[in-house]
Design a protein around this nucleic acid. Structure first.
Lengths: 157, 157
DNA sequence: ACGAGAAACGCACCCGAGTTGCATCTCGGG
DNA sequence: CCCGAGATGCAACTCGGGTGCGTTTCTCGT
């Protein structure tokens, strides 16, 4: 489903260097440590939205601690490098908001959750349309809402 | 959609009788049991959104079991009598659905959830727009998805 | 009214995601 | 190089959600 989409995205982009990732961290007032670099590298190579568990799964065989990964994610989110999203299933998910080289400079966008397999995908090319005289809260008309779609993905339908 | 609004709502409505609550349950294909009636009574008297913990706090001195309360909430939500919402803090909150008729309320239009007060409103005048060459699952392009917007309502912003 | 079957309950327990405490390590500035 | 404070790893905890199972109870049919 989304794996194909994400993979395509990753291939079309040159990976940032360690120096660039270091600059990103220091620019945010954070120390450039190995676990942090590994997390950032993961986000630049995988793209999309990722849960703590997914990231830990990928990085734990390098000796990185689960609680440390968690703290790193929270710190990076607080620093504005990642965004933290809750899609309604009690799992925090993280995405690059301000990556190295600006290549993954990601604005808010709708997310799609498959009600069958639970897969999550980003849909940056969708927006809301208010029809005619329809009423909506100001946050909606000002586009200050998060948008979540639920349905069946192409694989599950 | 603040406390004022909820309080006004509660005053303008006469509390339903046990018979009416029984009818509500049976109409949804559920048995009319004492714990379920107590939960429904709680919702009709308190209004607003309520977490499992709050409801259990209020009802446990009547001998009702925590797990039972949880199951009841989930059953009532599945039956369409309650709506279940996560406001972003990883706590499920439940609220009487409008009309409390469940079966007649569909997902054919977007819903807005206020992340502060938890109020849920229908936004039938909104739709999705796919921009340009953007890719999206077929269920999205065919409008077979439920759409949820999260943000601050006009009262809470 | 009675009986039966299945839904629902209460008791006890478990789980996963998130989070914390603390000793030790390490980054980076002086 | 030194040092201080931030960051890490280890171990454990918390909290909300959820499950298994024996027993109870609702309700439908006779």
């Amino acid at each position: 489903m989304s794996a194909r989409h994400v993979a395509t995205k990753a291939r079309s982009r040159v990976a940032p260097t360690v120096k660039e990732l270091q600059g990103l961290l220091r620019g945010a007032g954070l120390r450039s440590t190995a676990p942090r670099l590994a997390v950032l590298e993961y986000f630049h190579s995988h793209g999309g939205t990722n849960s703590h568990a997914e990231i830990f799964d990928a990085l734990h065989d390098r000796g990185f601690d689960r609680a440390t990964i968690y703290r790193i994610l929270v710190d990076l989110a607080e620093a504005g490098i990642l965004s933290r999203t809750d899609l309604g299933d009690h799992v925090w998910r993280f995405e690059l908001r301000r990556g190295a080289r600006g290549a993954q400079h990601t604005e808010e966008h709708p997310h799609f959750v498959c009600v069958d397999c639970g897969g999550v995908s980003c849909l940056p090319g969708l927006s809301l349309k208010v029809e005619g005289q329809a009423k909506a809260p100001r946050s909606v008309t000002k586009n200050k809402v998060s948008i979540q779609l639920k349905g069946l993905c192409d694989d599950c339908s």
